[in-house]
Design a protein around this nucleic acid. Structure first.
Lengths: 123, 123
DNA sequence: GCAGTCATACGATAAGTGTCGTACTACGGT
DNA sequence: ACCGTAGTACGACACTTATCGTATGACTGC
């Protein structure tokens, strides 16, 4: 499906990213996307900075290509939204969509992640 | 380690299962355990039947060995508790432990699963 | 004690995942 | 027009996973 240049890609802009429609987001996939420490970090960072963040704003102990990979997983499973803004790519949580689909889920996960980080960080 | 008959197995009873301590349960692992449609089904069934369920009580479209595999994943990641009761094995959600660790998380996931099942089941 | 039932163990397999490095593309500024 | 920066694509790799089938072990009841 990456060869379809009509529907998924933005009209004129050369760089555009595919995002699943809200109705296509599946719980198991969202959980899968969140079930990785690195991606959990990313999501926490995005939630903390309520606006949008550059990829490089989140310090991760992995290479750039791995970072790209994780962001893509999050985007393709409907957890974040990405769009280009000049040379950078801004990332934001899809809070509204997720809240509509699975009320309370994201907040629960974020809260759990905070709790665990507190427990593990100051032991 | 399956050859070690002294440590892993309970003192007298021949059949005993290892469960992680509550403090050893990790959010990413719980999410991973839940991030599979088959396991999500299992967890929903266990939550619905508030008591304990036999493995065979949950109809799954997979072989018995695969079923065992999924139950083990859930147990090893701290989502369910299993114990032998005669020839059967009873399974129950570790609601208390999970609620203590990650308040609201399991309920959020279960609610999300119900919502999605409703959406997908009666379309 | 023997057979039946429930579940496990083990091996196999195919597919998926996280990670990396290198090569490449897109954009913005000089 | 060129260079630097931000991010992607691609191939490689080791590891994990979901699945199965068959063989094995544990308990119940006859």
């Amino acid at each position: 499906m990456p060869t379809d240049t009509t529907s998924a890609r933005a009209p004129s802009g050369p760089r555009s990213l595919e995002h699943p429609d809200r109705a296509d987001i599946r719980l198991a996939e969202v959980l899968h996307a969140l079930a990785d420490p690195m991606r959990l970090r990313i999501v926490r960072a995005l939630a903390a900075a309520e606006g949008e963040l550059n990829c490089a704003d989140i310090e991760l102990p992995v290479s750039k290509s791995t970072c790209t990979h994780h962001f893509r997983v999050l985007r393709e499973h409907g957890v974040i939204r990405q769009l280009y803004r000049g040379t950078a790519k801004m990332n934001g949580l899809r809070r509204e969509d997720l809240e509509e689909l699975f009320p309370g889920l994201i907040d629960g996960v974020l809260r759990a992640a905070d709790l665990q980080a507190g427990r593990l960080g100051e032991e």
